[in-house]
Design a binder for these strands. Structure first.
Lengths: 283, 283
DNA sequence: CGTTACCTTGATATCGTTCAAGTACCGTGG
DNA sequence: CCACGGTACTTGAACGATATCAAGGTAACG
């Protein structure tokens, strides 16, 4: 009904994959595991749980850029945990048109639905270099049985996926290009902050404008122009040199422009008497 | 990158809600429960499981058209089971722009994520008259514990939701209007067939063109023109009289046009030695 | 130090939107 | 049985957001 009626500093931050001399991916130096980071924000874990969590991330496999690790229609072959680097979940039409469903960041699971399904209904591939651990469905199920609190957290992760997809659908379907781009940037920034990979006013941005276009149902040229608009408006700036990053100059204005409310990203966690994360005063 | 580069008969079928003399919703006459229908297609249920399933659907509440039963940001207040009628899950921007995330048909659950979350991140409201049973989270959890096979099936329902959302995202982001509309019609037709509410070449279509537009990121006028195109092309026809329906004149051509593969709608079910539903020979 | 991938920008094309008016139909009440 | 009012559908005309095409620039990588 109502359409998208157009109305109208510092340099902290580290990339998920800091490269050694020749470009092998490693975990960010001095940063604890992203998964641990996320879980600890939601739950005061016990020593045993900590060990179990570490076990999940053992044997990370380094992956090259543009490596497809899950194929639409093929069996999953286990559940992944991202230790470093970015991946993306996408679907592609026979003629090559592609839609990015979601981005997969450090600390995220890949294919939690393998617990329920046999075959994937999407592709997953790396953006740049990445490190991914892979666990069998059996192993995850055993962990679920043994550590129900961790299982509860992981189930929250799965619902979060859903919430992000809903929000993306809203962006693609109803937000204008500038709203959608701003919203995506803010979402990524927040998610990276959760796992200690973004700074107060800067975050790594390894995505190609092409990929952003495929996530938002736009074309790369228009994403370019839209980013320029944001830059010219003094909302953001770019650090073009590796690690390529985005500098947020005016977070408030950006949030207002995007209509971004971080509520959908907030998990409630678990704990005796622990209240759901209170609604942010700032949107 | 690649953009959306464009490129009669019997009258079976019954509406999800057959109206009595004055319009109260009832279950389709002579049709067994939609939920039972879905589950039995995936699992040979025992007598006990059958009883449990029936229990889930007791005390259905009749709802008037356009009744909002879940509010974005508010607590869920339980889990719903649709006995009859259509509902829709949507998100709305402050200025009124709306995106329909998915349609909720008879036999579907509403807010299975209430098992994990406290508050909704979307609205749910009825399309026309509907009948919905509501169960507490505790009751569902008890059922999950007692009937693990049913729990497994319901978890598959949840993943199916996800698969449908991915497909919708692809439609909104990358398919042309005519592809997207065709795809949506085919999806609804298939889903209705699963629960015995659609015929071989006809299915009820209570959705307003406005609602279709909000599901596909289009405007109602364009949906109208697109439907006309499909009609003029001899692919579909309309039954304007209640129950309003769509007649599929050339399913093959429609599928080809939409690039529709039903695989994403096929659940694997459970059962000893039961193979995943084989990939459809047709596409 | 060349090659490639990505970004940038202009010109032009188009799909889809908006606005606006009119029509068909259903349910209601006399 | 018919008049009425509302909702949804229909259609035309004009506009606009975004796509496509094309060319050049710049920085990373080997």
């Amino acid at each position: 009904m109502l359409q998208r009626s157009p109305k109208r500093r510092s340099a902290e931050g580290q990339s998920g994959v800091s490269r050694g001399g020749s470009g092998e991916p490693t975990q960010p130096r001095g940063t604890r595991s992203a998964l641990l980071c996320r879980v600890q924000a939601l739950l005061a874990i016990s020593g045993e749980e900590r060990v179990a969590l570490d076990g999940l991330e053992r044997d990370g496999t380094p992956l090259l850029p543009q490596t497809k690790i899950i194929n639409d229609g093929a069996p999953y072959g286990g559940i992944g945990i991202v230790k470093a680097g970015w991946l993306l979940r996408s679907k592609t039409l026979p003629d090559g048109r592609r839609q990015v469903i979601n981005f997969v960041l450090p600390g995220d699971f890949i294919c939690l639905d393998a617990l329920t399904f046999d075959c994937a209904y999407y592709d997953v591939c790396t953006v740049g270099h990445a490190v991914v651990s892979r666990r069998s469905v059996d192993e995850i199920e055993k962990l679920y049985a043994e550590y129900p609190r961790l299982a509860a957290i992981f189930k929250q992760f799965a619902v979060l996926e859903d919430a992000m997809m809903s929000e993306r659908l809203l962006s693609v379907g109803r937000r204008t290009a500038i709203e959608a781009v701003s919203h995506l940037l803010l979402e990524l920034w927040h998610r990276l902050k959760f796992v200690g990979l973004a700074g107060e006013s800067m975050f790594p941005m390894p995505l190609t404008q092409d990929v952003i276009a495929d996530a938002l149902g736009l074309c790369a040229v228009h994403v370019n122009r839209t980013l320029k608009l944001l830059q010219n408006g003094g909302l953001i700036n770019f650090e073009h040199h590796k690690p390529r990053s985005i500098i947020v100059l005016d977070a408030q204005r950006l949030q207002r422009l995007a209509g971004f409310k971080s509520r959908y990203l907030q998990l409630k966690g678990i704990g005796v008497g622990q209240e759901p994360t209170p609604l942010q005063a700032s949107n």
